[in-house]
Design a protein around this nucleic acid. Structure first.
Length: 256
DNA sequence: CGACTTTGACCGGCGC
DNA sequence: GCGCCGGTCAAAGTCG
């Protein structure tokens, strides 16, 4: 586990909308200072403070602009990634040989892959993407819920283990036609009745990326939620944490 | 000794 | 019907 994610190193840039509203009371306090007719020494001090405030405001503005630029870059990159993933199934050779369910799985999973929503980029998602996601969710309710995760791992590491907090029992391994790397089959072994299955295989494009495909939904709580010794962990579990941010995603799960 | 992994055999869906 | 392929089973092996 990446413990660096436990430390909040983010800057409070005062860009959150509800905080912008908070500027009004500050101005009110400033005006009160002058209205009360402060002594010259206090005026000097307040003048210095105002100078400092101006400087900090300018710095804040500069940082806000930088952050906006970073967000724009991220949105552009994200859209590009979505486009690539949408195009990917079309490039697959001889789809006719594939089973119906398998090919539809590919179509389903090319979108909404990480189950991550980013508040900053919500407005950037295209209507096309939304309609596909709606279609996917519709189909998923009919069939077993399927999700896919991309996890970076050492290319030299032969074990097909994706640590997601759950307990898995491997029940098979196969070499598939479209990928020289073997595919491992896992069942959730935390609860005997849990129907969830997981397939793990290295990406064809990038051998250092493990592709984990989850089928079904767990009918039991996350194991770490039951273990008091690691109670903090769910906060940083990408599959369950609302706090799983873009930066954490980039650190933990990176697909190039 | 129990839990887990490995791996060849088997099963069933699909295209021809 | 046959062969291909992905998915699953289950016996044997491994490990703590």
């Amino acid at each position: 586990m990446d413990y660096s994610s436990l430390i909040n190193t983010s800057l409070d840039l005062n860009i959150i909308p509800h905080r912008v509203v908070d500027e009004a009371p500050m101005k009110k306090v400033e005006s009160n200072f002058f209205e009360l007719g402060m002594k010259p020494s206090i005026n000097e001090e307040s003048g210095a403070l105002l100078e400092e405030l101006k400087r900090v405001s300018a710095e804040n503005k500069k940082l806000t602009e930088m952050l906006t630029e970073v967000c724009e870059n991220y949105n552009a990159l994200r859209n590009h990634l979505m486009d690539c993933m949408r195009k990917k199934p079309e490039k697959e050779p001889s789809p006719s040989k594939k089973r119906k369910s398998e090919s539809s799985d590919n179509n389903n999973n090319s979108n909404c892959v990480f189950g991550i929503t980013n508040g900053n980029s919500a407005e950037s998602s295209s209507t096309d993407e939304e309609s596909i996601c709606k279609k996917v969710s519709k189909e998923e309710t009919i069939k077993a819920k399927i999700s896919r995760a991309y996890v970076r791992a050492e290319a030299s590491d032969k074990s097909l283990i994706v640590k997601d907090g759950y307990q898995w029992r491997k029940y098979g391994q196969k070499v598939t036609r479209d990928n020289p790397s073997p595919r491992a089959y896992f069942k959730c072994s935390f609860a005997p009745s849990c129907p969830v299955k997981k397939k793990v295989q290295r990406s064809v494009e990038d051998q250092s990326v493990l592709v984990a495909t989850y089928e079904g939904e767990h009918n039991h709580p996350h194991p770490s939620q039951l273990d008091a010794s690691i109670r903090l962990r769910p906060l940083f579990d990408p599959w369950f944490s609302p706090l799983f941010s873009l930066s954490q995603f980039v650190r933990a799960y990176c697909y190039t």
